[in-house]
Design a protein around this nucleic acid. Structure first.
Lengths: 215, 215
DNA sequence: GTCTATACTCCGATAGAC
DNA sequence: GTCTATCGGAGTATAGAC
């Protein structure tokens, strides 16, 4: 133990411990993703994570109270990462259709880069797992982001008035989900720019534009 | 035992045994669907099926050599039912867009009526399960059905020439998969005519028409 | 074709020593 | 916060009696 250690303020030591703890939690979630990539989303087990971390299963319970809480943390982290990717992509272009297109592409690229999280977030394949409201919150923020982009597009005369309806949002989600579902189900290992489906993302946005033309 | 039993021809007795066996197999598959509806697609186990059938687990192995073979039989039966529903719906209307629309609607209605089979067929959520070519064959026949409908629509001047390309088929699959994926993930219990997503099926077909207008 | 018994592997979760 | 030990249960699949 280096001599400074004893001289450190208690608060600083507490911070370091908390930081170390957060690192371990992040590592557990990383390894959990590895397990899901190998054995499927529903193949995740506490034991498998412990093996990869090089500890015994009971140690995991010092960080997560149950297997479902690991799923919930993965769901939350996935939603947050997905939202961050979309927000960052949408903030650059001008508001409206260009921002919307950038957000859709960012979402698609994130899902292609994180296929197992994509399954967890969008397909809900785990029996008895219901995400907590906390973990689900970023998804609501994402819907609002796209809603704002649609409003901006209408205000800019790029889309018709009805593009702000619930129906339009449902159609937009259908178009995006269709591209990503076909990718995840049929060619999950293919890169974003190379598959049969992901290149259709700009095309389906064009179709959405055709569905809600400006007056 | 009734007196006729002993007098029956050996061939007839064999037929009856084979028939009885097929009934048991069908019953096992029905119960397997029940289990998946309750515990998720990946929650299917031989033991759970045995419990519902009122027998011990080893008895199931007289009908299926492994759990994966049960999945394969479910996959096959699902693909066949799905194909039959589509074929029946498409044969009535005149060839081309009307037949295509009828096929899409029939597919949607079948998926809504069979949500767990839909997940098994279209999402592939079971780790280590790869359908045999035999089980997959109806899916190829289905693609051909839709391909023929597209050709007919082009011949009838309802769609442009490029509607027969692989790209067009991919787009059509994306549009249909989007509607059904959003339904299965977000409102699997909702009826076909009542959800937010399934009513969009005719709308996305309109969009497809806009994407490939006749010359 | 049913059963019992069994071999084997794995799991989630807890108790308690260190 | 790590470990060992354990509880209690699940599962797939096989062997062999009836």
């Amino acid at each position: 133990m280096p001599p400074e250690a004893g001289a450190t303020h208690p608060a600083a030591r507490f911070d370091r411990r908390a930081q170390r703890r957060q690192q371990t939690i992040a590592e557990i979630l990383d390894l959990a993703q590895d397990v899901m990539a190998t054995d499927g989303v529903t193949g995740l087990t506490i034991s498998a994570v412990a093996r990869r971390l090089g500890v015994q299963p009971p140690s995991i319970y010092k960080y997560f109270p149950s297997l479902m809480s690991v799923y919930d943390a993965l769901f939350r982290r996935g939603q947050e990462e997905h939202l961050d990717a979309i927000r960052a992509a949408m903030s650059g272009p001008e508001p409206g259709l260009r921002s919307l297109a950038a957000g859709l592409e960012a979402s698609g690229r994130w899902v292609v880069a994180n296929p197992v999280l994509g399954q967890l977030l969008f397909w809900r394949p785990v029996p008895n797992f219901v995400p907590t409201p906390d973990a689900f919150a970023p998804s609501i923020a994402m819907v609002e982001l796209f809603g704002t982009a649609l409003s901006d597009a209408v205000a800019a005369g790029e889309l018709g008035l009805e593009a702000t309806t619930d129906d339009a949002m449902a159609l937009l989600s259908v178009l995006a989900a269709g591209v990503m579902s076909q990718h995840m189900a049929n060619e999950p290992e293919t890169a974003f720019d190379e598959g049969r489906f992901t290149p259709l993302l700009p095309r389906v946005l064009d179709l959405f534009r055709l569905a809600y033309p400006p007056a």
